[in-house]
């Protein structure tokens, strides 16, 4: 399980962020001692840091700078300061991404996922049950049977693959699709999911996607 460190001094936002991340399947650590922030961070050694700019004692940019001298831990700056200068400055100090508050929670999770993926070797193929999924090609292969997915279907399936065994809401799927420049509506999403199911059935995975009424879908 990936470990994410939250560096943020507003308590209520910390607890909500924690809930969001835990639900998404991450382990969460929270920085408590801002006075010795750098030592604390290095002690915890997270896989990714969500770093606010306005933190006590030293600001986030300074912490990032001193962190970059000793470590390459991916950092996403999360801040309410929405100015290009702040963003460029943060990126030049070595931040991996920059998100402004208030953010769409699903988008934040997608950004985290993207940064984590970048920091490890990207897997182009994923195996699911006894089938192999070629993400770039949009193909599922089982034995001799090959099924090709459309772009939309692949986005949906990929999202489900990344969130196996948890309920994925339609809103999350929709956000991911829109985030990938596919501006579809509710009906189109329903159609895409039923097409995806039909294609999965061809490789013997007909029951893989379950509908949870009023909540969403679950891949298991």
């Amino acid at each position: 399980m990936k470990k994410i460190l939250i560096v943020e001094d507003d308590r209520s936002i910390v607890s909500e962020l924690e809930a969001l991340l835990i639900h998404a399947g991450y382990a969460v650590e929270i920085l408590k001692d801002f006075q010795n922030a750098l030592e604390e961070v290095l002690k915890i050694l997270p896989d990714l840091i969500l770093l606010d700019i306005n933190i006590p004692y030293l600001n986030g940019e300074v912490l990032l700078q001193s962190l970059r001298k000793v470590s390459n831990i991916p950092v996403i700056m999360v801040t309410s300061r929405a100015s290009e200068t702040d963003e460029v400055l943060s990126m030049s100090y070595g931040a991996d991404d920059y998100v402004t508050k208030p953010y769409n929670p699903t988008i934040l999770l997608l950004r985290i996922q993207a940064v984590l993926k970048r920091s490890e070797k990207t897997l182009d193929t994923v195996s699911f049950k006894d089938a192999v999924v070629y993400i770039q090609k949009g193909m599922i292969k089982k034995g001799d049977i090959e099924v090709f997915l459309t772009k939309n279907e692949m986005i949906i399936f990929n999202y489900l693959l990344n969130h196996q065994n948890v309920i994925v809401t339609r809103d999350e799927l929709m956000t991911d699709l829109w985030n990938n420049n596919e501006y579809i509506n509710d009906n189109a999403l329903t159609v895409n999911i039923s097409r995806l199911r039909a294609k999965l059935k061809e490789v013997g995975l007909g029951e893989a996607i379950e509908t949870r009424k009023g909540m969403g879908y679950i891949l298991s």
């Binding site: 507003d10 936002i13 909500e16 969001l20 300061r81 208030p102 929670p105 699903t106």
Partner: peptide
């Protein structure tokens, strides 16, 4: 404004975390 955006972000997260939220609330936010 930066300060107000913090509770706004918290509220957005809160409604997102309680899955039974009403979309209309998010729209108002």
């Amino acid at each position: 404004i930066h300060e107000v955006k913090i509770p706004l972000a918290t509220l957005t997260l809160m409604f997102h975390n309680r899955k039974e939220y009403d979309k209309k609330v998010l729209e108002q936010l």
